[in-house]
Amino acid sequence: MSNLDLSGIYFRHLTSLPWILEDLSLHLSDGETALLVGDNGSGKSTLGKLIAGLVTAERGNVLIDKSDLASIEVSMRPKRVVYMGQTSYLQFFCSSIDEEIRFAAKISGAVLSEVYPAYPQFRLPDDRTLKPMDLPYTAMWRLQLFLFSVVFNPSVLFIDEIVAPGARAQMDALEAVVARRSENGQVTILAYQRVLRIEAVPKLRRFHLLEGRLHEM
């Protein structure tokens, strides 16, 4: 069962600038999914990067599965926490879909024969020799979702911005991921500018990120 604990988080980019996150706390566990809704610049992406250890809080604690994030070796973090950024497709490294999957499996220690069966659920091309960057924009997002949710399969997954939430393939893939993760007891966080309709997701909690803090809706 996965846990995410944030307590008393303070973050700002420079000491001369105002706090972006101010005394922010959040506890998610046991298959909970959080939808974080906030204005542009409210700190959604910053919070995701902070949870993944890509930026560091000036004060406060980040615990993943009851371990201090700072104490988790960087090479071990992808199994514990992953941040899927707004421009996630810029995180492709390889010249074919298959190489990309193998690369992710190598980093995460995933067994290929265990991850491939989930591939068709993401409505991705059967031809895995295609270049990831040649895929349509929405398919690139689903490929990244597959890599992060199935191959890395971390305790905590932060998905920042959902590309084309009005498109059925996008939401079908997302809802399946979130439902499976919930069933497995893993924690998922979705960040978006407005409240999204998400179906078939148990244990969904909604938060408004306002003035540096989370307010449950």
């Binding site: 939430p165 009005g166 059925r168 939401m171 079908d172 407005r194 409240v195 999204l196 309709r197 179906e199």
Partner: peptide, 17 residues
């Protein structure tokens, strides 16, 4: 998938609540 809403007489689709 989604819900139809109303905006005047205009049918449309959205996934936003």
């Amino acid at each position: 998938k989604g819900t139809a809403g109303t905006a005047g007489t205009t049918g449309f689709y959205s996934n936003y609540e």
